[in-house]
């Protein structure tokens, strides 16, 4: 059964990818790429990667599609059909593909339990993490503790992207003040949606908090929570206007929160150092190592959540402000 699902989904994937390559309507391309992500997420689920599926669905199908649509609004919908020089590209691609296929020839077969990947390093996570870290979701314990430093780096990547987008799409305060009051929300006229969302929004935010703090036991964690939280705010912005939303989250606050998230994560590491352990060695936080691990993971996940939510909201706001600016310039 699994295999069948696998094959069907994979075929769908190939079709979607081909369609993306063929189509010239960027709107369709973006929607298809969203579908592509969603299909991938389903496959991840099928392959036991629940956390990844969760993330891919919220990021690939959600945020990423949203951002692409936002920029399409600014740059126009159609790709011009132009002189391609596909031969060279095709050559490069085929060579790369050939190297990869060559590489697959000696690979351990898909799904085999005796592949080297399952023999070294990973078994310890599965066998000992309960005793060492005390968190049932092994992905969380590896993510936040064993390879916690990677996750700090990941948070920093998000932060960096935020800095990049802010510096590229900054709009001067003057433009903002002049235009703030006059900008209607994108979907202002959708009254039904407005009503529904008013009820839904608290639930979305609560769900975000659930994902944030339940990451130890089920799929989820700071990153997914941050994205969901941001998605809630974005939904609100679309329906009730940017001016309302940025009154709740002024840009400075968002920047501060993004910075605080990273600082919280790094700070936990520093505290561990001051308490006598290595950087990010949560064991030193409490007398009982497992308690220390719990506390550490809770705090760093919070840091991740903060940064991710703040950065995602900021990025969306920046794109939206740019639209506002364009309208202003047209006038």
């Amino acid at each position: 059964m699994e295999t069948l699902i696998d094959i069907v989904l994979l075929s769908f994937l190939v079709l979607t990818a081909l369609a993306v390559a063929k189509m010239h309507d960027l709107f369709a391309v973006v929607m298809l790429s969203g579908i592509y992500s969603l299909l991938t997420a389903s496959l991840f689920l099928d392959l036991d990667a629940v956390d990844v599926a969760f993330t891919e669905a919220s990021v690939g199908a959600g945020i990423s599609t949203l951002l692409m649509l936002a920029s399409l609004k600014l740059v126009g919908r159609y790709e011009t059909r132009t002189r391609y020089r596909p031969m060279l590209a095709l050559g490069v691609v085929l060579a790369t593909g050939a190297l990869l296929i060559y590489g697959t020839l000696d690979m351990p077969h898909f799904g085999s339990a005796d592949a080297p990947v399952h023999q070294h390093v990973a078994p310890r996570y599965l066998n000992d993490s309960m005793g060492e870290v005390g968190v049932p979701n092994v992905v969380t314990s590896v993510l936040a503790s064993y390879r916690g430093y990677d996750t700090l780096g990941e948070t920093l990547v998000v932060f960096t992207a935020g800095i990049g987008v802010i510096s590229l799409l900054r709009v001067s305060r003057r433009t903002k003040q002049q235009e703030m009051q006059k900008v209607p929300a994108d979907m202002q006229q959708q009254i039904i949606l407005r009503v529904v969302v008013k009820w839904l929004l608290p639930l979305i935010l609560i769900f975000a908090l659930y994902v944030q703090f339940h990451g130890d036991y089920g799929p989820g964690g700071g990153f997914q929570a941050g994205v969901i939280f941001a998605a809630g705010i974005i939904l609100y912005t679309m329906l009730f206007g940017l001016s309302n939303a940025s009154r709740v989250f002024p840009p400075k606050l968002l920047e501060l929160l993004a910075a605080l998230g990273v600082l919280l994560y790094g700070g936990v590491g520093i505290v561990c150092m001051l308490l006598g352990g290595n950087f990010l060695d949560y064991n030193s936080l409490r007398h009982d190592p497992v308690h220390g691990q719990h506390l550490g993971i809770l705090l760093v996940e919070l840091g991740v959540g903060l940064t991710v939510a703040a950065v995602m909201i900021t990025i969306f706001f920046k794109f939206t402000w740019r639209t506002v600016k364009h309208k202003y310039l047209e006038k």
């Binding site: 390093v121 430093y149 990677d150 290595n278 950087f279 064991n283």
Partner: peptide, 12 residues
Amino acid sequence: YELGGWAAPWGI
């Protein structure tokens, strides 16, 4: 230097 206090191939 073992980050997070985890020995090499398991930690970073």
